[in-house]
Write a protein that binds this DNA or RNA. Structure first.
Lengths: 339, 339
DNA sequence: ATGAAAGCGCTAACAG
DNA sequence: CTGTTAGCGCTTTCAT
């Protein structure tokens, strides 16, 4: 019993021979049954079942030059990206495509390898749910496969993009804190080299400047989007004197970490210190106190990205840049600045 | 630039012609460079880069009869399954395989279609992180591809399995509540038709019986593993008279829902009512009060499943049934029964 | 060290 | 309606 012995060894030829027919007829029963007489089709199907034949999709793909597979490349396996995937999955199913997901770990090298899978026709197209290094992508040569960027644009390649306006959303969130009377607002950002983090930090900076706040009092500390890094950043912020009265955090995970540290320090969140997160992940509404945060339509992003990809794969000109709307969801971690 | 027009359709033949060589030589540079002179190899690589050539993996797969791809089929896109995927991903990477993930939605039909992908040689093997309908699987014919079941066995097919002992773990959790003096212990289970849910419920029943508790006072209500269903189930349990003093819940999500309902009812969790969850997901430790729960080594399950699959694909006899250990993690939602 | 040629299993003209 | 045939792009003997 070697591995090969158990595999789908039977070929179409074997089925044809069993029936005394040509492989073309068997193939037609599988691909274009309307071209075959009902009686013949029935006989063929019976033989297929009886023999346990399975078509070799690799051969079919090679011949048809398409796979009906969409590859979704995600940088991390967090619930956030899962939501995007969920939306993509639903749209692909509607369109008769199968979604396979690949995990890049944010590693440009691995990201490139998955893109090669598409370039090499193992999938018809790809969605990059990530902020890829544009240089790494450009290095893959002039011949990019059908690719749609989701969440963040990939600079300089003119890739169709489905995203949210992180800069504007971060500004709106910061503005809200200003409206509440806060003057010393800190920002816990994501990694400096991640475009999404950069944009959210940029929005923060713009809002601070526009409000005319003292930039020196508005500290910025970088985390890495994990809860633990949010805790570390907040712990450092609490040592500043005077300490901030509000913190805008670049995602919900870090925001939860920040809230925990604030509470452990004996301070009251939403009163002593206000906190705003980003993404509106499930935990934002689940945690106590529930988190004021920026809602991002993750599933819609995935759904729309697939629709754009399907257009692109069909050779139709896709919209270059689709921006979905975010909104600030006000819950329990924000309140007026105490004077 | 002579290359610009190519648009990803370049074939090996085009590279060979550009160099005045045969395709065999180009192929060797890519697959078996040691058979080619260093000078030739360098020239070929230069041309490949210059022209932006990418090999067609579908053609290669067809010829080599292998893809080095492992398909991981998950029933739901929850963090729980993500953790399993994470472990699988790591192990596959070590072994030179690429993991692609497919989402079945628990739908046996779609599960079958993904299995067909493997049977049809689009992947070398698959891991079913789920509780598949054994009948649906058996119907795929005698020629099953290399498949390993993770989390739950698939009855009657003798599939290699990597799992935890849900029955024993559920018994241990329930026993702990008995030890604390609880006599009216309820169970919020998962869907009746999901084997994992069945096993956890079975363990609960065995523990209740062994402790000689009044079965009529130990209510069972089925949820669907979502937080909202845990809330609904707990709300109903609170209407029972006398109401339970402890609840064993089949996963952490539902347990969190249950805890929220208990608190909203003005009762104290861990004092008025004890709650035990299952899985030890991140939220179990994050939520306040932190959740007493059964730790499941999710990433290890994925890792071990891949290792078993690699063995199976190599034609080596894999272990039939690997059981990883769980352990009860005692946190804040459990306490002695009040007399 | 390199080239010529035979397929991998399937689909799609093109003929009957 | 069904059969014959020519590939899809690549790898791998078998020659040289």
């Amino acid at each position: 019993m070697t591995a090969a012995a158990g595999r789908g060894r039977l070929k179409m030829k074997d089925v044809a021979r069993d029936l005394g027919m040509s492989v073309a007829t068997v193939s037609r029963v599988l691909s274009q049954p309307e071209l075959v007489s009902a009686a013949t089709a029935a006989r063929v199907r019976e033989a297929i079942d009886r023999l346990g034949y399975r078509p070799n999709l690799t051969a079919r793909d090679l011949r048809r030059q398409e796979t009906r597979i969409i590859l979704v490349v995600v940088p991390r396996l967090s619930p956030f990206f899962l939501d995007v995937l969920r939306g993509a999955e639903a749209a692909a199913h509607e369109q008769g495509y199968t979604v396979l997901m690949a995990y890049s770990g944010g590693n440009p090298h691995r990201e490139g390898r998955f893109l090669d899978q598409v370039l090499s026709r193992r999938a018809d197209g790809a969605i990059l749910v990530t902020s890829v290094d544009a240089a790494a992508l450009a290095a893959r040569g002039p011949a990019l496969p059908p690719v749609v960027a989701a969440l963040e644009p990939v600079d300089g390649l003119g890739l169709p993009t489905v995203r949210v306006d992180n800069v504007a959303a971060a500004m709106a969130a910061t503005d809200y804190l200003v409206t509440l009377g806060h003057r010393r607002i800190a920002h816990i950002s994501g990694p400096d080299d991640v475009p999404m983090a950069q944009h959210r930090a940029e929005g923060f900076g713009l809002a601070i400047a526009r409000a005319g706040l003292d930039d020196g009092a508005c500290h910025r500390i970088a985390g890495d989007f994990t809860l633990a890094s949010g805790e570390r950043a907040m712990a450092r912020l609490l040592t500043r004197n005077p300490r901030p009265t509000a913190v805008f955090v670049a995602n919900d995970e870090m925001a939860v970490g920040a809230v925990q540290v604030i509470r452990k320090a004996g301070l009251t969140v939403g009163d002593d210190i206000s906190v705003i997160g980003f993404d509106d992940q499930r935990i934002a509404n689940l945690y106590e106190p529930s988190l004021t945060t920026v809602h991002v339509p993750t599933a819609d992003l995935g759904h729309e990205a697939v629709m754009q990809l399907v257009e692109a794969m069909a050779g139709r000109p896709a919209a270059r840049d689709i921006v979905l709307t975010t909104r600030l969801v006000i819950r329990d971690t924000t309140g007026p600045a105490r004077t």
